[in-house]
C-alpha cells in the first residue's frame, strides 16, 4: 500500500471530534501554528492508522492536532493549532 493512500481528511474524524465538541467541528476553520495557513477542519490531512489520530496542516504538513481515545478518556494535543474557529449557530 502506498503511503499516500493512508492519508484521509478531516471528514474522516467528524464522528470522533463530535464526541468531544458541542459545535460541528469539521466545518470550522483551524489556523496552523507552524505556517499560519487557515483551512477548514474537514480539509486537514488525517492519518488514522497509528495508535492515535494525527492531523496535519495541508499547507505545510505540520501536526496541528493529535487525538487519542483510550481507557475511558480522550487526550487532545492542540499545540499545533493556533486558533480553532467554530460557527456560532445562535
Amino acid at each position: 500500500m502506498e503511503m499516500q493512500e493512508l492519508k484521509l481528511d478531516g471528514n474522516a474524524i467528524a464522528g470522533l471530534l463530535g464526541e468531544v465538541f458541542a459545535l460541528e467541528p469539521t466545518a470550522g476553520r483551524g489556523t496552523c501554528e507552524g505556517c499560519g495557513a487557515v483551512n477548514a477542519v474537514g480539509a486537514l490531512h488525517v492519518y488514522v492508522h497509528g495508535p492515535g489520530v494525527v492531523v496535519r496542516c495541508p499547507s505545510c504538513e505540520s501536526i496541528v492536532l493529535r487525538v487519542v481515545r483510550a481507557r475511558g478518556r480522550y487526550l487532545l494535543d492542540l499545540r499545533g493549532l493556533r486558533v480553532l474557529e467554530l460557527a456560532d449557530p445562535a
Partner: peptide, 29 residues
C-alpha cells in the same frame, strides 16, 4: 486519496478558488 489529490491540484491549476474546492478522501481504513 490519489484521485482526490490529482483532481484538487488540477482544479487549482485551472484557476479554481481553493476555498471552493471541497474534498473527501476515502482510503482503506
Amino acid at each position: 486519496t490519489s484521485f482526490v489529490e490529482v483532481c484538487a491540484a488540477g482544479l487549482v491549476d485551472l484557476g479554481y478558488e481553493p476555498e471552493r474546492i471541497k474534498t473527501e478522501r476515502f482510503g482503506p481504513t
